[in-house]
Simulated scan of single mutants.
Amino acid sequence: MTANKQLKLTLIRSLAKRLPVHQQCVRGLGLTRRHQTVTVAATPENLGMVRKVSYMLQIEEVV
Rank of each mutant, 00 (worst) to 15 (best):
Val50Glu: 01
Leu11Arg: 03
Pro20Tyr: 08
Leu15Ala: 08
Leu57Pro: 02
Thr10Arg: 14
Thr10His: 03
Val21Met: 08
Asn46Phe: 12
Thr39Trp: 09
Met49Thr: 00
Met56Tyr: 04
Ile59Ser: 05
Leu47Glu: 10
Lys8Met: 05
Leu7Tyr: 05
Arg33Gln: 11
Gly48Trp: 01
Glu61Gln: 13
Gly30Ser: 02
Val38Gln: 06
Lys5Ser: 13
Leu9Asn: 08
Arg34Phe: 00
Glu60Cys: 09
Val63Phe: 06
Arg34Ala: 04
Glu60Pro: 02
Asn46His: 15
Arg33Thr: 10
Val38His: 08
Lys5Trp: 10
Ala16Gly: 09
Ile12Trp: 06
Gly30Ile: 00
Asn4Met: 12
Leu29Ala: 01
Leu29Pro: 02
Ala41Pro: 02
Gln58Ser: 15
Thr37Glu: 06
Ala16Trp: 14
Val26Asp: 05
Gln6Pro: 00
Cys25Thr: 01
Lys5Glu: 13
Lys52His: 08
Met56Glu: 02
Lys17Ala: 09
Thr10Val: 09
Ile59His: 04
Met49Cys: 04
Glu61Ile: 14
Thr2Cys: 08
Val40Glu: 00
Thr43Ile: 04
Pro44Asn: 11
Ser14Lys: 12
Asn4Asp: 15
Ile59Asp: 04
Glu61Lys: 13
Met56Asn: 01
Arg33Asp: 02
Met1Cys: 07
Lys5Thr: 14
Ala42Ile: 04
Glu60Tyr: 09
Gly30Ala: 04
Val26Tyr: 08
Pro44Val: 09
Gly48Pro: 00
Gly48Leu: 01
Ile59Glu: 06
Val26Cys: 11
His22Tyr: 10
Val50Trp: 04
Glu45Arg: 12
Val26Arg: 03
His35Ile: 02
Gln36Glu: 15
Gln24Leu: 08
Ala42Pro: 09
Pro44Phe: 10
Ser54Met: 06
Ala42His: 04
Ala3Glu: 11
Thr43His: 07
Val40Arg: 02
Arg18Cys: 10
Glu60Ile: 06
Lys52Trp: 01
Arg34Ser: 08
Leu19Met: 09
Thr39Glu: 15
Pro44Asp: 07
Leu31His: 11
Gln36Trp: 12
Ile12Lys: 14
Ala3Trp: 11
Leu47Ala: 05
Gln36Asn: 13
Leu15Met: 15
Gln58Ile: 06
Cys25Ala: 15
Thr43Cys: 09
Leu31Ile: 10
Leu47Gln: 06
Leu57Trp: 02
Val63Glu: 11
Leu9Glu: 05
Pro20Gly: 08
Val62Asn: 03
Ser54Asp: 03
Arg18Ile: 10
Arg27Glu: 09
Cys25Leu: 06
Arg27Lys: 15
Val50Gly: 01
Val62Trp: 05
Thr10Cys: 09
Ile59Pro: 08
Ile59Trp: 06
Pro44Ala: 12
Ile59Met: 07
Val40Ala: 05
Asn46Ser: 10
Val62Leu: 12
Lys17Phe: 12
Met1Gly: 14
Val50Ser: 01
Lys8Phe: 00
Pro20Asp: 07
Glu61Thr: 15
Cys25Lys: 00
Arg51Glu: 07
Gln58Ala: 13
Leu19Gln: 13
Lys8Arg: 13
Glu61Asn: 07
